[in-house]
Nucleic acid binder design. Structure first.
Lengths: 340, 340
DNA sequence: CGTCGCATTTAGAACGATACAAAAGGGGCC
DNA sequence: GGCCCCTTTTGTATCGTTCTAAATGCGACG
């Protein structure tokens, strides 16, 4: 079990060539004679040699890993995103270093510091709430390129990949307006997160274009989880006339709201319209199926991975800002308003 | 952007001490004089030094990473498991190397080969279906300890962490028997996976203890996804009298079945009883809330991480086999049988 | 026969850290 | 002053790979 790892030198000794030759064989160099190659390859197999990429990376001053720091893996949106990142990185021969922060800037600090010590070629960071770009820059240094996902960081001069939150929320709101709704709430999320602000802005855009003033009680905050959202349901109905529809911050919130509505005897999709955001797998199969804005998190993961790898190859171009398209998927949770 | 990384030598030069001294400072050795330490630490900060753990690991022949290979990150059960692993590894100063296989043995081969080259201290593997232990052993070699999670591998002499599938399914079945059910199906999963076989065994144990013979049409296979399960619902009702309750392979299957029941005008929790397995977050908040067997995937992740770290410290003890306790959580999806 | 060209192979110095043994610098004591 | 001891510092080899420049072998050619 604990015998030493087999190294180049073992192989070299085993078939009486130099370490350099074995190294050339490993990298398929055309320099080695066919016969020598065969001999060495046999020995590699015989001894069960496993390449040590860390040593190679050290010598070459390169890296074959990319760090992925995510705030909440148990959120299906981020789990899908992570799967997409890993898929694309793996295809390019890179390995994913994982870190999760659980929305704590404290843990984020530690996780980034620890991952940076492993000299990743790049970092994909979905920042915890209230992160400070300047502070993070100090931790990771200036030599490692970073791609920020999802939440804009103040003071960061890094690549940024965002969902087109504003347009997505506008699409959802326009859909509800078209169905005849006039009192449309924006439900859930924390108003101080950039993604929530942008989605609210999209909601406001559509309302304004329709000539409707958004009333403050229609803007309801809640933590972006199902349970917290369910608990906030009653906030929708404190004033009369109450909204007849709600654009939700994300799918988790929308599912929570539907639950809360059921509990109050309302039937989403029949007497109250609900839209979500993300199109998590569950959205298609809940009851009623959720009308939502699809963002293809797995595709976003692949996109993030490809972007950071490109950045690794060309470090000195100016930071880019990508807004991934969002598209509305209409399902059963949206309906006309009750008496229209 | 692309200036060289700052190294020990840069710091040493910058404050006129030797590399060895700087190294001692970094490791908080009591050997260095307080004044020297202060001087070096200032220089470290000034130059923005980032420790290179790969180089240190090479020299020390150690590793500070553990590989986590998981078949499906988009399954919330595994996402939670991964979060637990990362949490515990991080707390112990290790970093998680992530790989996902999507249930393909082909990809699993590649992923393991690639991760092994990064010389992880250990590997936590939740194997893809139909994996062959001997083959995997050849890929990872004998020097890296492996902990197998969830699915027993034939021919593997590695640590194994399993859910107590048999007992969990027995608990669920006993609960239904107690409620008065007699015709209880086992619904979903692939009969050739070890976890499905064990859960079916638990179901059989309870039925046998109650003196009831399990009829073959009550054993229904389906892929372990919500949609596939929903599509299989009708298989429950091909024979009369049909089962009045179903023990499901897992929560995804149970949720799919509830969906299929609704579509057929049945009301789970009122005229048909359903149990799940895993207690994914959704189970508590769906309608009706799902009676299920809780396995605490995040806790399992932590447990796996701790076990593999222990194995790293003591490689030569005999492989252990852990069966994590499973416990029944009774919620609204189980009810008495219709006319009793 | 020397030497040039070509295809292969190799010795030895990196990469950035740590370990070990040895050196340097002070006191204190006889 | 010489010796010893203690604290602090440092030179150098090393981890497993790759890179560079140089060596080797060998046939051909003038």
């Amino acid at each position: 079990m604990n015998q030493r790892r087999v190294t180049l030198a073992d192989i070299a000794r085993g078939c009486k060539v130099s370490r350099a030759t074995v190294s050339l064989v490993l990298r398929n160099s055309p320099l080695v004679a066919a016969e020598t190659r065969k001999k060495v390859e046999a020995e590699l197999k015989r001894q069960g040699y496993v390449y040590n990429r860390a040593a190679a990376n050290l010598r070459q001053r390169t890296s074959s890993s990319v760090a992925l720091v995510v705030n909440d893996l148990s959120n299906p949106f981020f789990a899908e995103f992570a799967a997409g990142v890993d898929e694309a990185l793996g295809a390019a021969g890179f390995v994913t270093l994982l870190g999760s922060t659980g929305e704590s800037t404290e843990r984020q600090r530690k996780v980034l510091a620890s991952l940076s010590e492993h000299a990743p070629a790049g970092i994909i960071l979905s920042p915890a709430e209230h992160s400070d770009g300047n502070e993070l820059l100090k931790i990771v240094g200036t030599h490692t390129p970073v791609l920020v996902f999802n939440r804009k960081l103040p003071h960061a001069r890094w690549d940024f990949l965002a969902l087109d939150n504003r347009r997505g929320a506008r699409l959802a709101t326009e859909h509800l307006l078209q169905l005849g709704h006039r009192r449309i709430a924006f439900f859930g999320g924390h108003a101080d997160s950039s993604s929530c602000r942008e989605r609210r802005q999209g909601h406001a855009d559509a309302m304004q274009a329709a000539g409707i003033a958004v009333e403050p009680p229609w803007l309801i905050e809640s933590a972006p989880t199902r349970l917290q959202a369910a608990a906030q349901t009653s906030a929708l109905f404190v004033r009369d006339p109450a909204p007849t529809a709600a654009v939700c911050y994300n799918d988790a919130v929308a599912l929570g709201l539907m639950l809360g509505l059921h509990a109050r005897g309302r039937r989403p999709g029949h007497d109250f319209a609900v839209t979500g955001f993300d199109d998590i797998p569950e959205a298609a199969v809940c009851l009623p199926p959720l009308t939502t804005v699809a963002t293809d998190p797995r595709g976003r993961g692949r996109q993030a991975a490809e972007r950071i790898l490109q950045r690794v190859r060309l470090p000195d171009t100016t930071p880019s800002e990508l807004h991934a398209a969002a598209e509305l998927v209409v399902r059963g949770s949206t309906c006309k308003p009750p008496h229209s």
